[in-house]
């Protein structure tokens, strides 16, 4: 398991990285390398030129400004887990990061790579959807910001245009009356999800004022379970409603069949994970 040959450049700035992407056909960005290098070693993916963005200043770190948290794309999973800001204002990201891979992989893998890779099995995309995150992107034409909702277009396919780099992610700080949950079913530690679900709710007393449900690995890309959200919005959640929500989620799923399970199992597991996340989210909205 050895990658084929490529050239390597350690970018010094975002502009340098973009220039190298433009100058070298089929060049790829190298972030944590924990999706890219395994694929190259298996020769599923061949890149003649790698632009390493690990040395670029300013792509790392977590800050809060008002009710917006900004996370640099090169922030690793371990850094998410260790962050006091996230622990206090967006614990959903901490919980999700803890369920990604294993300690060593989390030391290298970045949130930006996890989002930009477009792998439906990755955990952050569904979390981004639930958080209604905004993605800050730099390209040859400058900076743009787009919502995560609509970013994930298919397997290994996102709204990133050629030569663009995801530089930061903006998520809202949790306010009182909001709650969240992430549940992931996996075969073993270090495995991608059989199914996962990230949920953010805004409560108005007992009533769900708003809800966003993101689903992991049950479609060609991370998806929002919008029909299920519609069922809940404005309601009090009880067992009967949850049953209906589960059905709506099963209907929304279109998973690939693999050794983790067939369509039926994965879709049902998405529903179970969503139910657990909804209950958890409502529970911690009360706190």
């Amino acid at each position: 398991m050895i990658p084929s040959c490529f050239e390597y450049h350690k970018a010094t700035s975002i502009a340098d990285a973009i220039a190298k992407l433009q100058d070298n056909e089929d060049a790829k960005l190298l972030a944590g390398g924990h999706s890219l290098l395994p694929m190259m070693k298996l020769r599923f993916s061949e890149a003649p030129y790698l632009v390493d963005i690990n040395g670029i200043e300013g792509l790392k770190g977590i800050s809060i400004d008002g009710d917006t948290i900004t996370i640099g794309a090169m922030t690793t999973e371990s850094e998410l887990i260790r962050s006091d800001i996230l622990q206090q204002y967006c614990p959903l990201l901490v919980e999700a990061a803890k369920l990604v891979a294993d300690p060593q992989v989390r030391n290298k893998g970045t949130i930006g790579g996890d989002v930009a890779h477009g792998d439906p099995g990755n955990d952050h995309p569904a979390v981004m959807l639930a958080l209604d995150a905004q993605l800050v992107i730099h390209g040859p034409d400058g900076e743009r910001m787009i919502p995560a909702n609509g970013f994930f277009l298919g397997t290994y396919w996102t709204a990133l245009e050629e030569y663009e780099i995801l530089v930061a992610i903006k998520v809202p700080a949790l306010t009182s009356g909001t709650g969240h949950g992430y549940h992931k079913l996996k075969r073993k530690t270090g495995d991608y999800a059989v199914a996962g679900s990230a949920v953010v709710v805004e409560m108005n007393g007992d009533v769900v004022r708003d809800i966003r449900i993101g689903l992991t690995n049950v479609a060609p890309m991370a998806i929002r379970a919008e029909a299920a959200e519609d069922l809940i919005r404005g309601k009090r959640v009880d067992d009967v409603l949850l049953k209906a929500v589960e059905k709506a989620i099963v209907a929304a799923c279109d998973p690939a069949v693999d050794l983790r399970g067939d369509e039926e199992y994965k879709s049902h597991m998405a529903a179970i994970m969503a139910r657990r996340s909804i209950i958890q989210a409502i529970e911690n909205a009360k706190e």
């Binding site: 924990h34 395994p38 371990s78 060593q104 992989v105």
Partner: peptide
């Protein structure tokens, strides 16, 4: 060689890393 087993683990700049998945 697929970053699952950890027998290649070394410590780099204060973090555990799987050296089979690092250039």
């Amino acid at each position: 060689e697929t970053s699952h087993c950890g027998v290649c683990t070394v410590d780099i700049d204060g973090e555990s890393v799987k050296s089979c998945t690092l250039l």
